[in-house]
Design a protein around this nucleic acid. Structure first.
Lengths: 118, 118
DNA sequence: GTGATACTGAAGGATATGCTTAACCAACCA
DNA sequence: TGGTTGGTTAAGCATATCCTTCAGTATCAC
């Protein structure tokens, strides 16, 4: 519970970069090696490595080295937590709009005007 | 590579900071003035203003000034787009796991073994 | 062995980020 | 009128981010 905010920091920051999102998109389709990931990316291999290190630190990606090839794959849990944070916010403002609607409903009912229309 | 991805860049980057997520959480509950938002935040008012500017640039928050008070409220669309990007990734890897499962099923069916257990 | 492939580590530089303080303007209020 | 409240601007500073190049190490093919 204490590190939950820091985990979201890392996850959202990882997703804030287009290169890293491209890597996540690629890995959502299938696992891939580091050079597979680097090939379409218009930057040096060390740069891709640094993006991957950040993706691993955030928990979005896991990797395993076999021989000289490191195979990267997606780890869904981190992205799930980010999604749940967003959904929790939506539940809050939906609930607020519901309360507002109920209040306006009640006002119109007491005022004897037309019935609410929604 | 400048428009649509840039919107996600801004949204995820805005959500990567705990102060800005706290502001979004606060505004998900109800609209608030700038100083309402700043009061619990242990930093100067200009710092809060800079976070708000970034939240507005990302489209997560909108504000309106009446008299000398600026009232901020949440704008759900930006967060919705971020959520949809995450959901699209999940659809991809779920589809991949389904294909893998079907493949393993077929292998086991031909081999005459037990079904998969998950 | 030799050479190519796949990755890793270290150092550095340009720019971005997250805060600060100081000064300022624009409503309200007594 | 003068003072307080709410917000805004500008400048500056420490650190973080994103990329580079150069120099490795470890594995594989022959």
């Amino acid at each position: 519970m204490l590190n939950q905010p820091a985990a979201l920091d890392l996850t959202f920051h990882a997703l804030a970069d287009p290169t890293r999102r491209a890597i996540v998109e690629r890995l959502s389709h299938s696992p891939a090696s580091v050079s597979d990931l680097a090939r379409p990316l218009a930057m040096s291999l060390p740069a891709v490595m640094q993006h991957l290190a950040l993706l691993e630190a955030s928990g979005l990606v896991v990797s395993e080295k076999t021989g000289r090839v490191r195979t990267c794959r997606i780890e869904p849990l981190a992205m799930r937590q980010a999604e749940e944070w967003i959904q929790a916010r939506r539940r809050e403002w939906v609930a607020r709009l519901d309360r507002l609607g109920a209040y306006l409903n009640e006002l119109q009912g007491k005022g004897g005007g037309d019935g609410p229309h929604e």
